[in-house]
């Protein structure tokens, strides 16, 4: 049992980097009217932010771990600074993503593999940064919800659906169109930062991250 737990935490980074996919029908979406375009960005903080979240990581539905996540972001620079801490407050991992370039300043085992760093920061970016450049398609439904997509068939793509009132769902697909990540963002939103976030990575090495906002530090 103990060895299985040892294996599990050491494997977390690997899971993030190699987790597989799930199929889900992808609706057709064309460019909508220009006035509705800004709604596609409302799930993401528009200005710089700092946030502290409680994170529960659940791997393969049976093993879980509790962590503290700190993120600092500057959307105009596509920049994210991210830390992972133990509940006791020790820093396990610290990295920065700036315009696609990743630099890791601290990584304690078992969080010290390049694959973990890349996977973690991509998950954080999915939660907090609006995809680039403009959406390839978008629409606003009669119920006031938005559906927006970045990327085209044959490319990795991101789809956003929801509203500030109902919460948001973010889907990430690979270049085959297969779902790899599913995110739910729920309010209240504190300067654009969701108080409750759930991320699910699909596949045989799937995992879930449940995040609750502890502190916003602007």
């Amino acid at each position: 049992m103990k060895r299985r737990r040892q294996w599990a935490i050491g494997f977390l980074g690997f899971l993030i980097s190699v987790s597989g996919c799930a199929s889900l029908t992808e609706p057709v979406l064309k460019p909508g009217i220009r006035e509705d375009l800004s709604g596609c960005y409302t799930p993401f903080p528009a200005k710089s932010w700092k946030a502290v979240h409680q994170i529960e990581a659940v791997i393969q539905e049976r093993i879980s771990s509790s962590l503290i996540g700190i993120t600092e972001g500057e959307p105009s620079e596509q920049k994210i600074h991210s830390l992972l801490l133990t509940p006791e407050g020790f820093i396990l991992f610290e990295a920065e993503l700036r315009e696609g370039a990743l630099s890791v300043s601290k990584a304690m085992p078992p969080f010290d593999s390049p694959a973990f760093a890349r996977g973690l920061i991509e998950d954080v970016a999915l939660l907090f940064l609006a995809p680039q450049p403009l959406p390839s398609g978008w629409k606003r439904g009669e119920d006031g919800t938005w559906t927006c997509r970045w990327g085209r068939p044959g490319e990795a793509r991101t789809e956003v659906h929801g509203s500030m009132e109902q919460g948001w769902k973010i889907l990430r697909r690979n270049d085959q169109g297969v779902l790899t990540r599913e995110v739910f963002l729920n309010g209240p939103f504190v300067r654009g930062v969701a108080s409750h976030m759930d991320l699910r990575a699909f596949g045989p090495a799937g995992y879930k991250l449940k995040m609750n906002l502890l502190q916003a530090d602007f």
């Binding site: 103990k2 737990r5 040892q6 599990a8 935490i9 791997i59 093993i63 509790s66 509940p87 078992p110």
Partner: peptide, 16 residues
């Protein structure tokens, strides 16, 4: 242990 979903759960840690 850590507390989640209303119950105490064993930590998955190699730090014993």
């Amino acid at each position: 242990y850590h507390f989640a979903d209303g119950v105490w759960k064993p930590d998955m840690t190699q730090a014993v």
